[in-house]
Write a protein that binds this DNA or RNA. Sequence first.
DNA 1: CGGGAAATGTTATAATGTATCAAATTTTCC
DNA 2: GGAAAATTTGATACATTATAACATTTCCCG
Lengths: 163, 163
Amino acid sequence: MASQALPYRPHNHQACVSQALADARAICRAQNARLTPTRERVLELIWQSHKPLGAYDVLAELTAEGQSAAPPTVYRALDFLQQHGLVHRIASLNAFIGCAHAGENHTGMFLICRSCGNVLELKAPGVSGAIEDAAKAEHFKAEDVTLEIAGLCPRCHSESRHD
Amino acid sequence: MASQALPYRPHNHQACVSQALADARAICRAQNARLTPTRERVLELIWQSHKPLGAYDVLAELTAEGQSAAPPTVYRALDFLQQHGLVHRIASLNAFIGCAHAGENHTGMFLICRSCGNVLELKAPGVSGAIEDAAKAEHFKAEDVTLEIAGLCPRCHSESRHD
DNA sequence: CGGGAAATGTTATAATGTATCAAATTTTCC
DNA sequence: GGAAAATTTGATACATTATAACATTTCCCG
């Protein structure tokens, strides 16, 4: 069995991208939302790795491809993708990452490696439950959860001990 | 008994401020850190309410008081206060709030009311434990947790139902 | 009181995100 | 099919948040 989650070990990443794009098309079709070429291209760029990408990094790639793009181009596409649950914004990094559980109606929990930069998105029902309980105990109506854990992924952690 | 946590109901807020400043002085003395006038004044400004304050809001108040302040003045003071556990940065708001549990070595969990803007900081050991477990299951070494819940505080929630 | 460290002042600039309005495209509905 | 409405995109300008770099001052310690 694999000891480490996908982002932390070599894998056929093109499969991740293809899957994400296929899911996105299906989700947009189901929601009657228009996954236009720019939006799809931005999603693909975001998915180019498991590291979060800044909006201006996306912009740079678009302009490098010859597209006439400005900041609003990118932010609008990212807003659309977020609203349809296809990407997440990582608040602690001001960056964006492809959603690993698109369409599953989840509360994202992100493990962010400060060494290699890769991010793993978990579902962690136990955590979500504990958060709901804590909010409920204060009579607080939770609507949106930001949960980002910075640290060392298994790979970088084991390497750092072999110095 | 009180049904709502402090930030969500009227209270003698000056007592919060005095307590926070007294704690800060004690903590800095214990750590041999210098709580200079600017740092102390920034902490006091941050504590002027239970709503997070932006760095440039702090800056505006400092300049209004006649201090010759620039962005680095504020960010340096905030960095110092964060390092000594006296304020927290709310990543989802790009703003800062006084630490409600200074010196207690905790993982902050923030309940942020999107209506009134007040923030309650909780300790929630159950949540921290669940997060640690989830990270451990992925062999991830957690170092820093960002946990921010946006929603409606008890007060705003009950008001919104009486429309 | 002198030498080094810490803190502050100052200017400039980087990085991230939005407002606004015009033009083009797509959808809707007759 | 074609006109009106809604959505999407283009383009310019600007707002907000944060940092780099270097000079100056203040404080601590011997």
